[in-house]
């Protein structure tokens, strides 16, 4: 984090991680977009199809969402990256627990009741939220922070339509 703060804002790279659901939530795919400070894309990764069966839903129970988010989507996508982003931004709270598995800040972009967005870190890493805000380029402070997630969602939908990736074994 110290290195990130010293790096000029325009040289920083940011990772946006999100998941998209299809077929009324039966199918899940993850997408990970690394951008430069202008949110121009540097790298993009998409997971294959994750389709838990009814038995698996029961057996995993409440742990299913976390397992999918962290072990099947988050960690594999981040491990695929060639770039080393300074910061990972997520829109699903489940991804926050990635912080325990990776060595870089993971911040949840949480919407507030008044339509603004705040950055929230995993408990125990609270100082990273404020530091993360400093890393963010000025133009991403505000509603613009959500825009790259829309691109991920759109790209993952297109990838799904084109059947990119292999089917999961479930």
């Amino acid at each position: 984090m110290t290195d990130s703060i010293e790096k000029p804002v325009e040289d920083r790279t940011i990772c946006f991680l999100d998941l998209t659901k299809f077929e009324q939530g039966e199918i899940i795919r993850g997408g990970c977009l690394v951008t430069d400070a202008l949110t121009r894309p540097i790298e993009f990764w998409v997971s294959g199809v994750i389709k838990p069966s009814s038995i698996q839903k029961i057996l995993y129970g409440d742990t299913l969402q976390e397992y999918i988010s962290i072990d099947l989507i988050g960690v594999p996508l981040l491990e695929s990256l060639e770039a080393s982003p300074e910061l990972i931004l997520v829109r699903e709270a489940e991804f926050l627990k990635l912080r325990q598995r990776v060595d870089m800040p993971v911040l949840w972009v949480r919407a507030t009741v008044d339509g603004q967005y705040v950055l929230q870190a995993l408990p125990g890493y609270e100082n990273e939220a404020e530091a993360g805000r400093e890393i963010l380029p000025r133009r991403l402070r505000g509603r613009n922070i959500v825009e790259p997630f829309l691109r991920i969602r759109s790209a993952v939908e297109e990838a799904h339509q084109l059947s990119v990736g292999e089917q999961t074994r479930s």
Binding site: E82, A83, G165, E166
Partner: peptide, 19 residues
């Protein structure tokens, strides 16, 4: 006959050349 484990899936990606 039952395989309860949800197995990892492949990831596919690309690094984009600068414009």
């Amino acid at each position: 006959q039952v395989d309860p484990e949800l197995l990892p899936v492949r990831t596919m990606g690309a690094v984009f050349a600068p414009s």
